[in-house]
């Protein structure tokens, strides 16, 4: 309500010409842009999946139909061979690239200095520190980190732009996160699902979330993205899926709608 009244008070006579005398006009430089797109991660008992669409946008323009958002971290060469951690970044793509390259370097250095690959939990903590170090000029990205933990179980960590992080079973990020996340709550963590006939009212027993098999998860990821493509203009072109298991990292692409 106050803002409405402020507006009233500030209302002055409108001139048809521009008011050049009313102070110097500043053209600021804004160091961020939003490149759209969406990412998603789900873990299972012995795997983790990170997925993202490959569209890059600025405003209503499609820059490119093939800009992957999921990267292998700490691999031995340009192809990422030998990596055991994957990272997805969505938001401001230039910051995403910079963040990915910094983390990649850190994980490589760790391997050279300690003679063993960095654990996913250690990498997760390090990524949080990297993000928080830029607390007052943040990397404008939503990052998701995935791999296998010490017990061989799928591990997934999600971040906000300034480094708050949490280990989760599943997470959607980016432009269509608000569309995908409630679908995941329902289909992965079985939120709002109850065991039929288990009782009335408070006696009703909630369906417990349990790790899903890989093929089911792949199907959910594809469903989530085909749904997001239908209703969000910044999502589309191709679906990149990176699956990490004890056998290694598999990367697959599926076509999505290009409209």
């Amino acid at each position: 309500m106050t803002s409405l009244m402020d507006h009233q008070a500030r209302e002055t006579v409108g001139y048809s010409f521009s008011e050049s005398t009313a102070g110097v006009k500043q053209h600021g430089f804004y160091p961020y842009t939003d490149n759209g797109g969406s990412t998603l991660g789900i873990t299972g008992s012995d795997f983790a999946i990170l997925a993202g669409d490959t569209r890059s946008t600025s405003g209503y323009n499609i820059n490119s139909r093939m800009v992957p958002k999921v990267f292998k971290i700490g691999g031995d060469d340009e192809t990422g061979e030998g990596a055991n951690i994957i990272l997805s970044v969505v938001g401001f793509a230039a910051d995403g690239t910079a963040l990915k390259e910094r983390l990649d370097t850190v994980v490589k250095m760790y391997k050279y200095q300690h003679g063993k690959p960095m654990s996913v939990s250690a990498c997760a903590q390090r990524l949080s520190t990297i993000l928080y170090q830029k607390r007052f000029f943040p990397y404008y990205v939503h990052a998701i980190l995935a791999g296998l933990d010490e017990e061989g179980k799928g591990a997934l960590y999600s971040y906000d732009p300034v480094g708050s992080y949490e280990r989760e079973q599943c997470r959607a990020a980016g432009a269509a996160a608000s569309l995908i996340m409630p679908f995941l709550d329902n289909q992965v963590n079985f939120k709002n699902q109850y065991i039929p006939g288990s009782g009335e009212g408070h006696a009703l027993v909630a369906k417990k979330p349990e790790p899903l098999p890989l093929e089911t998860v792949k199907g959910l990821v594809r469903d989530a993205f085909t749904s997001a493509v239908e209703r969000h203009i910044e999502v589309g072109d191709n679906l990149q899926m990176v699956i990490i298991t004890k056998a290694g990292i598999e990367e697959v692409y599926h076509p999505l709608k290009k409209d």
């Binding site: 269509a176 608000s178 995908i180 996340m181 679908f183 209703r231």
Partner: peptide, 11 residues
């Protein structure tokens, strides 16, 4: 509505 678009489109 954003969330509903996601869940309805999915379910």
């Amino acid at each position: 509505s954003d969330q509903l678009f996601g869940t309805c489109e999915g379910l």
